[in-house]
Structures are given as structure tokens and as C-alpha cells.
């Protein structure tokens, strides 16, 4: 059990979990109400109740942990500040990922994947343009060969 101060945003996250659990419990109640223990909604309600109770437990524990605006330096470097919960690179990459998945449907696999690979390699790997292009083409060709031919998987 850790008694270190909560991570930035951890309390808020706990409240969000409580709210989400309550919503799910309410939805589960809507399935078949309290009609009988063997109804379709009974088990989902039980699971949602477990979610709610444990989420409340999590919030309770967060509240009992010492509150300090500056967590001690013993915390790993990566979790010391608020931006480190969602560092800029991760947020940016999430956005790239969502854009890629959305574009898959509209632009097609080959075009959007090439762009995605180039952008993400440029984001994460940061080498010369030639290297990036070579890696991207290599990965794309391998994927096309291995999955298109060997596994015979349908690509999006």
C-alpha cells in the first residue's frame, strides 16, 4: 500500500470513476430493474455496484493520503508534475492516432498509413528525413507483405 501523496489529478480521476460507476449502475438498473435475481440486469447491477463501492474506496483512500502541492522528490521524475500525467508528446500522439484512425475510413489504408508512419516516426524518432522515409517504406512494405500475403489479413 502506498501512502505517498496522490498524483496530480488523481483525486479528480477518482471522482470521475465514482461518477462513471454511478452512471453505469443507473444504466444497469434500467435493463430490468429489480424484477428478479435471475433477470438480465441483475448481474450487471452487481458488477456496477462493485465498481461504485471500489471507486468510493479509491476516493476515500486518496483523501486520507497526505495532501501536498509539491510531491516529495522521492516520486519518480516522470510523475512529479501535472503535465507529466499527460506529457505533451503523449497528448500529441493521441491526437495523431485519433486523426489516423478517422482518416483510415475516409482516405484509405495506404495513404493514411504512410502519413501516419512518417509523422509518428518524425515525432518519436527524430532522425534525418532520409532515414525516416526509409524506415517508413520498410515498415509499410513488410506489413503489406507479411499481413497481406502471409496471414492474408484484410487491411482496413
Amino acid at each position: 500500500m502506498t501512502n505517498s501523496p496522490p498524483l496530480p489529478g488523481e483525486r479528480g480521476f477518482g471522482y470521475a470513476l465514482v461518477a462513471a460507476s454511478a452512471l453505469i449502475l443507473w444504466l444497469a438498473f434500467g435493463i430490468s430493474g429489480l424484477s428478479s435475481a435471475s433477470s438480465a440486469g441483475a448481474f450487471p447491477m452487481a458488477a456496477a455496484a462493485v465498481m461504485l463501492v471500489s471507486a468510493i474506496g479509491i476516493v476515500h483512500r486518496n483523501r486520507r493520503r497526505p495532501h501536498s502541492p509539491r510531491p516529495p522528490t522521492t516520486a519518480p521524475r516522470s510523475v512529479r508534475t501535472g503535465t507529466d500525467i499527460l506529457p505533451r508528446e503523449v497528448a500529441l500522439y493521441m491526437a495523431i492516432l485519433i486523426a489516423y484512425v478517422v482518416s483510415l475510413e475516409h482516405v484509405g489504408f495506404l495513404a493514411s498509413t504512410s502519413v501516419f508512419l512518417l509523422v509518428s516516426l518524425w515525432q518519436l524518432h527524430r532522425r534525418s528525413a532520409v532515414t525516416l522515409l526509409a524506415v517508413a517504406i520498410g515498415v509499410l512494405l513488410t506489413i503489406q507483405m507479411v499481413f497481406g500475403t502471409l496471414f492474408q489479413v484484410q487491411l482496413p
Partner: peptide
Amino acid sequence: CPRGILIPIIILLSIIGTYS
């Protein structure tokens, strides 16, 4: 093998795998 290359590959495999 640098993670910068690994991460996009994992993502790509995940997407292809899920779609398939």
C-alpha cells in the same frame, strides 16, 4: 531497437489486428 520505431509499429499492428 529504438522505441521510437517500435511504438508506431505496435500501433499499426494493433489497428490491423483489431480490424481483421
